[in-house]
Computed example of a mutant assay.
Amino acid sequence: MRLEEIVVPDPGTGELLVEVAAAGVNYIDTYQRSGQYPTPLPFTLGKEAAGRVLAVGDGVTEFAEGDTVAWGHGEGAYAEHAIVRTAQAVRVPEGTDPQLAAAVMLQGMTAHYLVHSILPLAEGDTVLVHAGAGGVGLLLTQMLTRHGVRVLTTAGSPEKAELSRGAGASDVLDYEGFGPAARDLTEGRGLRAVFDGVGATTFDEGLAALAPRGTFVLFGAASGPVPPVDPQDLNSGGSLVLTRPSLAHFIADRAELEWRASEVLRAVASGDLDVRIGGTYPLADAATAHVDLEGRATTGKLLLLP
């Protein structure tokens, strides 16, 4: 990655030109950068940001110059100015810090669909959330506990464990041996669900920790992709369910995007959802942010500030 000066573009039909206040750094950015998610070169990273509308393109009626908007599934957010399709943008509630809005769009809507749209969860269910002190982990734990779900998490240090407990985790487990520990904490029954954004290093043990008819939700692969799975393993494990969702399919229409974004942003604005910004970096230091994120040296959300 390198910083380059380019001409500020004009918005086209159905587009906004936005002055970026903050851009989120996410694992999907590292997947694109590394080639794990192939992307034609050259390109500008960044799917998530918030900022002020400087100009609107032809046909735009929903937004006006001066509006503060945010998005969580766009392109080119690692920049001082970004072109955003109106179909991807949402209005940020008045008085909301744009940095908080940028910090919560992708990970907050991810946590929202994981809680509301993957499987039915009942009060008293016990689930496991990996990387409990990460950006998704902290938000997901808060949302689950507010639904009466008991949340176990994993964390890689005492400091991260403390952050996870602060978000509502009832128990924080070491990565080593988390599966048997989770079974012990459920009196041998196993877990209703595992929410795993880690991938290769946690998959097998997490699958074995599920209760019969439990659901394994693989929503990321920070440690690498999971090898192919024999469907018979799901049967022998107790008629288990394995799903690999991604945010794009859960904000595929405008109504669903508005629903998720508005609920998340309102919760942030009211203080019901605590957003931890774990680090901010100048735009020129985007590579450092990637090194820190991939090195598991961070908690909460990382932001680039143009």
Rank of each mutant, 00 (worst) to 15 (best):
L100W: 05
S270W: 07
L240I: 04
H73A: 13
G72S: 12
A22Q: 02
P282M: 06
P180E: 10
A161C: 12
E162A: 15
A103T: 10
A103I: 06
E294Y: 06
A131N: 02
L240E: 00
A70Q: 04
Q88V: 05
F216D: 01
G168Q: 04
R183V: 04
I251P: 01
G51E: 09
L303Y: 13
L304Y: 07
G300L: 09
P180G: 12
V226S: 02
R296Y: 04
I118Y: 01
V90G: 06
V18A: 01
R244C: 10
M143W: 13
A155D: 04
V69T: 03
A103F: 04
F216L: 14
V90T: 12
G57K: 01
D29S: 11
A267M: 14
L139P: 01
F219R: 04
A55Y: 06
G168E: 03
T298F: 14
A167K: 00
Q88L: 15
K160C: 02
G35K: 11
T44V: 15
G108N: 08
Y37D: 07
S236V: 15
E187V: 07
V7N: 03
L144S: 01
G24N: 07
G206Y: 03
P306N: 00
V25S: 07
E5Q: 14
V20F: 09
V268L: 08
E263V: 02
T39N: 05
A21F: 06
E162D: 12
D171I: 01
P40N: 15
E5D: 12
V25R: 08
K160E: 03
V136F: 03
H290V: 08
L302F: 14
T154H: 14
G279L: 00
A22M: 12
P212H: 11
G214L: 00
E294H: 07
R91Q: 14
Q232D: 13
T61F: 04
G12R: 13
E294C: 06
D204N: 11
L257K: 07
L234A: 03
F178C: 13
I251M: 05
I6L: 08
L152D: 06
A50L: 09
G156W: 09
L303V: 10
S262G: 10
E256R: 15
V226L: 02
G132S: 00
P228I: 05
T30W: 07
D10I: 06
E294S: 08
L121E: 08
D97G: 13
Q99A: 09
A49G: 02
V60K: 03
A101E: 11
V8L: 08
V84R: 01
V172H: 05
L283I: 05
D253N: 09
R150F: 10
A161W: 09
R91E: 12
P245W: 11
T145L: 15
R85P: 07
R192S: 10
P245L: 07
E159W: 03
H147T: 15
E176S: 12
V20P: 00
T141A: 06
L138F: 10
E256F: 05
G271F: 04
V226M: 06
R266K: 11
S34Y: 05
A267V: 07
Y175A: 00
Q88F: 04
Y31D: 05
E256C: 02
G220F: 12
L139F: 04
T288Y: 08
E15G: 10
F178P: 07
A221G: 04
S157D: 14
F219A: 02
G190D: 04
A221K: 04
